[in-house]
């Protein structure tokens, strides 16, 4: 396993419904990131299709593996990189049951997927109308260490990142499509999730305007002490490379020992009280 590697935050805008164009943009960014030494390239939530799809999602959703995943799998193999991207996943057992999924492909092909657990359905968000929630956190053993995947609104719920960390992920990848009105929340919560789990957290957000929603970008790689190591521009497409060095976790974990101090018995109380809310 590699202790140290470069990760690219590929902050793109999407052409809604145009998978060919979006995949072309993903390919272009992977090649550029690779030239700059990146071994992991991360794209935003639903980066294959765009975010505001409404009923068109039924036309655009596809299985994993499926056409888009196959193309991006080949790209990962050809370039020898790990890539995280998002797409609406059609369940292979049904005809219209869709998940909001993050996919990890690598030099040996498809590694795995994560299905978003927390689907925002309030204000301008209508994800529960279209998506079935996922039921599992996702952590994958790779040459770049154990990588966990979460999506956007999941970051508001500390238990998702916690469980991902407890399964061994030292790098939590959060792909996102967050509009500008939510910026302050994400800037705070991404840092909090990194600190409380003494883990690296790579947050990659969408940019561009879809149906009046302006996505703010501001993608960032955060260290286990909560320091923002690198950050992309706000509101504009950008590609920024940062470095993950797992050795940085040890001194933090030693003197800011949240994982050592965890109290599992409180989780039972949490469950008990959450059910009574």
């Amino acid at each position: 396993m590699r202790e140290k590697f470069k990760v690219a935050l590929a902050q793109i805008s999407c052409k809604r419904g145009d998978k060919t164009e979006n995949i072309r943009k993903i390919e272009d960014n992977v090649v550029r990131a690779k030239k700059q030494g990146a071994e992991l390239v991360i794209f935003p939530e639903l980066s294959v299709t765009g975010y505001v799809l409404r009923d068109q999602i039924y036309e655009l959703a596809e299985t994993i593996p499926g056409q888009a995943t196959n193309i991006l799998e080949k790209l990962a193999v050809k370039t020898g990189t790990y890539i995280v991207f998002g797409l609406p996943e059609l369940s292979d057992k049904t005809q219209a049951t869709i998940y909001n999924a993050a996919v990890l492909v690598g030099p040996d092909g498809l590694i795995g997927k994560y299905r978003k657990m927390y689907l925002p359905t309030h204000s301008v968000f209508e994800e529960k109308r279209y998506f079935r929630p996922g039921y599992q956190t996702a952590v994958f053993e790779t040459e770049l260490g154990k990588i966990g995947l979460i999506i956007c609104y999941d970051v508001f719920f500390p238990e998702v990142s916690r469980l991902t960390r407890l399964k061994g992920a030292q790098l939590i990848v959060c792909i996102s499509a967050s509009p500008a009105t939510r910026r302050a929340f994400f800037e705070t919560l991404t840092v909090a999730r990194a600190i409380e789990n003494t883990a690296f957290l790579a947050y990659v957000n969408l940019v561009g305007i879809e149906d009046g929603l302006q996505f703010w970008g501001g993608s960032r790689l955060i260290g286990p002490n909560g320091r923002v190591l690198v950050k992309t521009k706000y509101d504009k497409e950008d590609l920024v490379i940062g470095e993950v060095n797992y050795a940085d976790i040890r001194p933090i974990e030693t003197f800011v020992p949240m994982l050592k101090d965890l109290r599992p018995e409180l989780f039972d109380k949490l469950k008990e009280n959450a059910e009574k809310l």
Binding site: K15, R16, G17, L53, R54, D55, Q56, D211, G212
Partner: peptide, 15 residues
């Protein structure tokens, strides 16, 4: 089955 203005839910624009 699907009704304009009710549950014909499309993006305002598609670009």
């Amino acid at each position: 089955y699907r009704t304009v203005g009710k549950d014909f839910r499309l993006p305002s624009t598609f670009y």
